[in-house]
Design a protein around this nucleic acid. Sequence first.
DNA 1: AAAACGTGGGT
DNA 2: TACCCAAGTTT
Length: 344
Amino acid sequence: MNNRANLRETPVRASVAPRLLGWYDRHARVLPWRAPPGSPPMDPYRVWLSEVMLQQTTVAAVRGYFERFTTLWPDVQALAAAEDTQVMGEWAGLGYYARARNLLACARQVAAMGGFPDTRQALAALPGIGPYTSAAIAAIAFDRAETVVDGNVERVVARLFAVKTPMPAAKPELVALAETLTPDRRPGDFAQAMMDLGATICTPRNPACALCPLNDLCHARALGLAAELPRKSPKPPRPLRLGTAWLALDAGHVLVERRPAKGLLGGTLAFPSTGWDGTEHPPPAAGPWRELGEVRHIFTHFELHLTVLAGPPQGINRGLLLPRADFDPTTLPGLMRKVWALAR
DNA sequence: AAAACGTGGGT
DNA sequence: TACCCAAGTTT
């Protein structure tokens, strides 16, 4: 019998959840969207909002946004009634703007339904809620025994069972293994415990195995492989793209435009620019233009160098000429904040 | 099913 | 500096 089959057998496998829950009772991080261990579940609205914000995003980055959103919109009905542009403006800087568009679409569906559905399947039918988020809301907000698999859980499980298959090919195997660990009692706390363990102990590099409540069960540790798992396939190189942005402004006005709803920075407020894939666009005003400088920005799949030109807001052929008093640069995405910073 | 989709912090 | 990574989803 190999090690993995052995670990799957009951006594060892069944000890994971109690062990982890005991650790969580003592070490759970305190977070604004989280109920204390063993407490009644948090409001589904806050669970959902935090989970969407946390998709591919750090806890530190989310805190302020979560605070502002819940202050502005204390429940899903309030959010459903919000203006699209205000929600996009409040999301600005957090990234992955499809999340904001889906968030609002989801809020409106949920408000129309009279509240959040309480099953994973029904949750997964809503915009912006996929396999991870549906399981997380079902487990954390509704106490359902769903298995929640994010990047942390993948790493913990890959190490616990010493899965050497590279990601992302290993994903189905890791999900199946994770399912064998999910307890019927306190599944929400268990899910958060797995994620906390991955975030604080079972970290990508330099895992703190000596502090891990599961260290004596961990096959990767026994094999001296903990820090090397999960393995990953090599990433493709990041290409460089070039473009131009135009800052048409004077003492009283700034020219901006709303980007198309789909695609990169979809639905966000921006300064007019060329496409960044070689697509040319004419200047949005008559000029003359002078070069302010260059902005460099790293996206997930390419690097952008944007030449920024400044000129008077005359002979305008597109966009929206905003009075400076109505222009708030904090409603711009990160790239466009860098462009604006050049003007000051 | 591979690629698109942001950003900031850590090493 | 360069690269990795973070509570993924959509098409």
